[in-house]
């Protein structure tokens, strides 16, 4: 089942350059989902509160989370996401510059769905993003736009 096109792809990353490239590449790949850029933990909390608690905004189709964030570390943010009723089930894909085994271990333990090392090479980045989109937007089923009411499932 295709995800609702209104569901945004959320990128949590403090590097505007990286986000700009990613946004560009997504467009290049023909991805129609809106991109929401949250530069830090504070912005992420506000986003979850505002879009989540009133139940107005559609849930993200997936979240790209950078680990090395200022103030609130990406891993702590991952924990907060997994505690939030609204986005608990949304796939979170970790994008990190390095593949520190401890980080990999920790993130999967805390509920990450994938762990990627950002390639320096532009072409590799492009290929990687293409695979991510093909997988999560093309093949995988993702949670619905709105959180289902309790007892409504099945």
């Amino acid at each position: 089942m295709r995800a609702d096109i209104a569901q945004p792809i959320v990128i949590i990353d403090d590097s505007y350059e990286d986000v700009e490239i990613t946004t560009h590449l997504l467009k290049e790949l023909g991805v129609g989902h809106p991109v929401v850029h949250l530069p830090d933990g504070e912005a992420t909390r506000l986003y979850i509160q505002n879009s989540g608690n009133d139940g107005h905004g559609p849930r993200p189709v997936f979240i790209l989370l950078d680990l090395n964030l200022p103030v609130v570390h990406g891993h702590d943010l991952l924990l907060e996401i997994r505690r939030s009723d609204w986005v608990r089930t949304v796939p979170v894909l970790i994008l990190s510059t390095t593949n520190n085994p401890r980080d990999v271990e920790r993130c999967y333990a805390s509920g990450a769905n994938s762990f990627f090392t950002k390639p320096v090479d532009f072409d590799k980045q492009r290929r990687m993003l293409a695979v991510i989109c093909e997988y999560w937007l093309g093949y995988a089923a993702t949670p619905l736009s709105a959180k289902p009411e309790a007892g409504l499932s099945d």
Partner: peptide, 24 residues
């Protein structure tokens, strides 16, 4: 260990942008 990863991260980030924008 942490320092090495941090340093690698901080060095790589601008590098990646340079590469990406050159690519663009």
């Amino acid at each position: 260990d942490s320092f090495a990863y941090m340093a690698a991260h901080d060095l790589k980030e601008p590098l990646r942008s340079i590469n990406s924008f050159s690519g663009l």
